[in-house]
Design a protein around this nucleic acid. Structure first.
Ligand SMILES: NC(=O)c1ccc[n+]([C@@H]2O[C@H](COP(=O)([O-])OP(=O)(O)OC[C@H]3O[C@@H](n4cnc5c(N)ncnc54)[C@H](O)[C@@H]3O)[C@@H](O)[C@H]2O)c1
Ligand SMILES: NC(=O)c1ccc[n+]([C@@H]2O[C@H](COP(=O)([O-])OP(=O)(O)OC[C@H]3O[C@@H](n4cnc5c(N)ncnc54)[C@H](O)[C@@H]3O)[C@@H](O)[C@H]2O)c1
Lengths: 244, 244
DNA sequence: CTACGACTGTGATTCTATTCACAGTAGCTG
DNA sequence: CAGCTACTGTGAATAGAATCACAGTCGTAG
């Protein structure tokens, strides 16, 4: 950033630099920064230095500053960052400064747990509506949210102005569901169903495979438990067979 | 790998190369490879080429081969990889070739959803035991698993030979819980509680913050929705204040 | 008012991950 | 049985992320 107009920086200055490609890892960390900043704000802390904040979230000060720099200048030299301001700024960057409506697909065990979870509201998300195919569930109200039949998702999604969705349904027909959801204006999907699907262009899809996380942990536990990790392979016999 | 003894490679050959530091990202992908390989196996596919498998999981063929090469040689030239063998090998690498016992802490909405989920068994994990502090829940049986009081975790964990744990409790006293759990021989923890904790050395800890995933998705949706992403910042006034 | 100490933002550097590209080889064909 | 094709495993090249280190700035203290 240029040395001039330090005090006079206005939004336009930053808007002129949208080209900065910011990595997903940076965004993930931003989320953590904000969480910590909110705690600090609650504790009455007003300003904090990169060194201290970095210590709290477990990254290096350099990385923290670099992450923030992706979005422009907003620290005040020798006073550090304003906790409240920065928390709000990160919210705005992520689009969570105003509560967003989210749709839930699949009101099973997991879906109901998500519906009754109160932690989303604090982070700027509101599950506004649920969908299912089960006649037992359609029409009922779960934790204050009505459950509609998937057949009507197009009209209902637009009615509630939903742009994000959570999938907690079943693997069958998941791709078709994704296509319909994306076609109805949803731009981002969080998928809990352990099935590989792809979203059409312009729609972001994020997988959350819990079993996969456990596998990773299992690997880590096994590799440094058995010192020189015996996690070798067993090439076995060439296994003569047909070609795929 | 040397060109010799292609057919005669035995486990010891690989065990001599434990120095290969394999990245977490590689392990994450291994998990996906295995999932796809199991589907292929069910479909009767016996062999597959790196190109085809890579296409199915959404990575480049080079990356797939590189990932596998971290663990040694196990493709057969011009026949590709043996689907069943490779699936088993990856399981062994991750330590999921034999079912592992997992402990669950916190039998709330989320905890019960996890307990009733049948997908873990297929991936080599079995939630063998649950813990809570709520008198209403302690002593009861949920989906076949008994719920013990957290006070007795040390003895119960050893009894069930548990080396992995899932946290779905509450933020209060979480660090203390982690310390006790790690002290009882647990080597890996999957944490759903949105609170920053650290594990003592030798114990791996993985966070799964669902709201954080939503934030990431929100960011992505907002940034390429508003073309030249207006996600600028608002430096605001210098905000004179105390030092942190 | 000047000199100092400390902090941010960032160019340069190091480290890591991914991709390229090819040597070497197995199977297949005629 | 020789020649061809297409694949794997891997060194080399590239791209990307994290870290180092410092110039420039601000507040403060004397
Ligand atoms: N329960 C868990 O702890 C857990 C953990 C990880 C992943 N998952 C995955 O999340 C998903 C939901 O898990 P669950 O335990 O709640 O399963 P569940 O079977 O209890 O619930 C699934 C619900 O989705 C509904 N459904 C099926 N097809 C649908 C469709 N096309 N559109 C909308 N709704 C549909 C069903 O009627 C049912 O109510 C599953 O795919 C599961 O693999 C669950
Ligand atoms: N429900 C969700 O969809 C969801 C989503 C994301 C994260 N989470 C997080 O997962 C955790 C559990 O969520 P929930 O909705 O089931 O909450 P919950 O309040 O329904 O259940 C929490 C359970 O943990 C028990 N508990 C409290 N302290 C404990 C301790 N020290 N040891 C063992 N058990 C203890 C409580 O008695 C209760 O039964 C929460 O921290 C929540 O923030 C939940």
């Amino acid at each position: 950033m240029s040395t001039s107009e330090q005090t006079g920086t206005d939004a336009t200055t930053q808007q002129k630099r949208p080209a900065k490609r910011v990595s997903l890892q940076t965004v993930e960390r931003l989320s953590v920064y904000r969480k910590v900043l909110e705690e600090l704000d609650r504790d009455g802390v007003e300003n904090i230095h990169s060194h201290d904040l970095a210590g709290l979230v477990g990254v290096t000060p350099a990385q923290l500053r670099r992450d923030l720099a992706s979005f422009g200048t907003f620290g005040n030299i020798s006073r550090g960052y304003n906790v409240y301001q920065m928390s709000r700024t990160i919210s705005r960057i992520m689009g969570t400064d105003e509560t967003q409506s989210v749709a839930l697909f699949g009101v099973g065990d997991l879906g109901r747990a998500l519906l009754s979870y109160r932690g989303f509201e604090e982070r700027g998300f509101h599950i506004a509506v649920a969908f299912d195919v089960d006649g037992e569930k359609v029409g009922r109200v779960f934790a204050g949210r009505r459950c509609y039949h998937v057949d009507h998702l197009e009209t209902v999604l637009r009615e509630f102005d939903v742009r994000m969705a959570i999938l907690a349904s079943r693997p069958e027909g998941l791709q078709a569901l994704v296509d319909r959801v994306c076609g109805s204006g949803v731009q981002a999907i969080l998928n809990f169903v352990p099935k590989r699907v792809s979203a059409p262009g312009g729609c972001h899809l994020e997988e959350t495979d819990i079993a996969s996380k456990l596998e990773m942990l299992s690997f880590l536990a096994h590799t440094d438990a058995t010192a020189a990790h015996t996690a070798s392979l067993e090439p076995g016999e060439p296994a003569e067979g047909m070609t795929a």
